[in-house]
């Protein structure tokens, strides 16, 4: 059985004053997520990531196609019993304390008093909020709210966890903690489905990723397959090479970059490597490093959606940081 399955999922939002004009947010999206996988949904702003998550949680209804959580319709609430969800930019009740909010969340899952108390203590400790449990949420910072959001998503010890931009609002320490938490959840056999702008997080955490752009699936695959599509090039770094050495090597390189005393060359073809090494020995250049350059997730991402005119995406991918707002 699959943890998550979408078949030709399509969603049109009605826009305009009379809400008569359809705007397609998702186009025939078909995905399969195995139990125990960490699955990343990547895409620029407005790609349809949050819409996909909302359909899977029954918050939005598909125009066509279907979605399944452990084989059940998302509108069937029994499917939600083993599901946890962290919304994007979560917002909770200002009048409650963290413990009261967690108690409320636990009660909706029908947890017994004993299980509830144990689980709340454990989770607040895990996300680093055990000292803030009695503070009202209106006094929480964005990062604290995000941590609480993660804690409430785990209150029912779910088998499937949806995280919409889980690193949003967290400082580097918080991001590392959340990353470790996700890896720990994976070790415990949980299925994690998350959307992110931060490619380095996806690269660290995901078994498989899917890339969405303008509601269409641009690519989906196992991360190791994507990243080992082949050597895209070989990188050589030389220290203080003579001018003649550089001139001799230039015909083999697709790029030559000087940084201080060092020269970095990217080879055009792997087959030239023997000849290049011979030239290095001939010109007595000092070889610092020789590395095969594999395709990164960022390269893959840019290859799939970089052709579209989307500067925000380029900035996001290039910087490996999040954009201010997703869709």
């Amino acid at each position: 059985m699959l943890a998550v399955e979408t078949i030709n999922l399509t969603k049109d939002y009605r826009v305009g004053f009379w809400r008569t004009r359809p705007r397609r947010a998702l186009e025939r999206l078909s995905l399969e997520v195995e139990i125990g996988e960490v699955f990343g949904l990547l895409g620029p702003n407005g790609a349809g990531k949050s819409t996909t998550l909302k359909i899977l949680l029954g918050l939005v209804f598909p125009t066509a196609g279907s979605a399944r959580l452990f084989g059940r319709d998302p509108r069937d609430i029994s499917a939600h019993q083993s599901v946890g969800y962290l919304p994007e930019n979560p917002s909770f009740y200002d009048h409650l304390t963290a413990k009261e909010f967690m108690t409320y969340a636990a009660s909706l899952f029908g947890l017994s008093d004993k299980a509830r108390t144990r689980q709340i203590g454990l989770l607040l400790e895990q996300v680093g909020l055990s000292d803030s449990g009695k503070f009202p949420l209106r006094k929480f910072s964005k990062g604290m709210i995000q941590r609480l959001g993660i804690a409430q998503a785990l209150i029912n010890d779910p088998d499937l966890i949806f995280l919409d931009e889980p690193m949003s609002g967290l400082d580097p320490v918080g991001r590392r903690e959340v990353r470790n938490l996700i890896l720990q959840l994976k070790e415990n056999g949980k299925t994690i489905f998350f959307s992110t702008h931060i490619l380095s997080d996806a690269e660290t955490l995901c078994d498989r990723v899917a890339i969405l752009d303008h509601g269409r699936l641009q690519g989906c695959g196992e991360l190791r397959e994507i990243l080992q599509v082949g050597l895209s090039s070989t990188e050589i770094v030389l220290e203080k090479p003579s001018r003649d050495a550089v001139v001799a090597l230039e015909p083999f390189a697709s790029s030559v970059v000087r940084t201080g005393n060092r020269v970095r060359l990217e080879l055009r073809a792997e087959s030239d490597l023997t000849e290049v090494l011979a030239q290095i020995v001939r010109w007595n250049a000092k070889l610092i490093s020789l590395n095969p350059v594999r395709m990164s997730l960022e390269d893959y991402f840019m290859e799939r959606v970089g052709g579209n005119d989307n500067s925000s995406l380029r900035n996001t991918a290039a910087a490996g940081t999040e954009s201010p707002k997703s869709e």
Partner: peptide
């Protein structure tokens, strides 16, 4: 408005 509804309806609440 506060999107707290997302938290509630994503749980087993009809």
């Amino acid at each position: 408005d506060r999107r707290t509804i997302h938290n509630i309806l994503s749980k087993p609440v009809r």
